[in-house]
């Protein structure tokens, strides 16, 4: 049950979260709050800082480490205002020609009365549309869980990378098992069927790069060093591309998935 082990690893306590990545990769980070429409969603951290010497915008879904943090961050499940804050900061990045790094770690967009009342579906739909034509490089990095609509709402990018133990799926293995076999405890089988591991997604052509993870703890520093170089190079290349070319290749990146010539 290899796949479910990855799911467990992606959800593991103590796994690095968005805040850890920001602390280790970005210098002079300033967090900016609010969607200017309704509220600030603590499940999404957004702001600007430097990657090496390059100004970039960072947007990430934060789960938190301690119980107190987790409650504050709504366990990494964003409300519509979170996606709207993200879009606001992405538009700002476009204006100042800053690359955007999205860090994704969520079980899914929040399912609740208020989320529906404020248009969760619309908020994600708008991000999908707008991100497709945002005239600045976007790279989405999956650092933990990639739960369905809540994940893709920040993952319409020029490139999508995944940590080795991150997962990305249309539905949680538990949800899939309960629909398929009316038994949520068969999540291991479901995880296997869904093809949600980084390796499988790479083979399906859904992600461009898988980042090897060393052991957690001190060794994880190496992952940050590696990422710092890789991200810097990717952004530097993308910034040099003519905007039409950048947008065309972003469009084609998604356009080819499930296109007829594959059949």
């Amino acid at each position: 049950m290899e796949a479910y082990k990855r799911v467990m690893a992606a959800r593991a306590k103590g796994r690095a979260t968005t805040q850890d990545y920001i602390d280790n990769l970005i210098s002079d980070f300033m967090e900016f709050h609010g969607d200017r429409r309704y509220a600030d969603d603590a499940a999404i951290i957004g702001g600007i800082g430097k990657l090496k010497n390059m100004p970039i915008t960072v947007i990430g879904i934060e789960k938190g480490h301690t119980t107190k943090e987790k409650v504050k961050r709504n366990f990494g499940s964003a409300h519509p205002e979170g996606y709207r804050k993200a879009l606001r900061l992405m538009k700002q990045a476009e204006k100042f020609n800053r690359p955007i790094l999205c860090l994704i770690d969520t079980a899914g967009a929040y399912c609740g009365i208020e989320a529906e009342e404020r248009g969760q579906g619309l908020a994600i739909a708008e991000n999908l549309m707008e991100m497709m034509t945002l005239k600045t490089p976007i790279l989405s990095l999956f650092i933990g869980e990639g739960g369905s609509g809540g994940a893709i709402g920040l993952a319409v990018a020029d490139q999508v990378w995944m940590l080795e133990n991150a997962v990305y799926s249309v539905i949680s293995p538990e949800g899939c098992a309960s629909i398929l076999w009316k038994d949520a405890s068969k999540m291991k089988e479901a995880a296997q069927c869904l093809k949600l591991t980084a390796k499988e997604l790479y083979e399906l052509g859904v992600v461009e790069k898988v980042i090897k993870e060393k052991e957690q703890g001190k060794e994880f520093k190496k992952v940050y060093y590696l990422l710092e170089d890789l991200l810097f190079d990717a952004f530097e290349k993308a910034l040099k591309l003519p905007k039409e070319e950048l947008l065309e290749s972003r469009y084609q990146r998604f356009r080819k998935i499930g296109a007829q010539d594959e059949q």
Binding site: A155, V206, G258
Partner: peptide, 10 residues
């Protein structure tokens, strides 16, 4: 699986 999710972006 994920290929369905990608249709949202496409």
């Amino acid at each position: 699986g994920i290929l369905s999710l990608m249709q949202m972006a496409k």
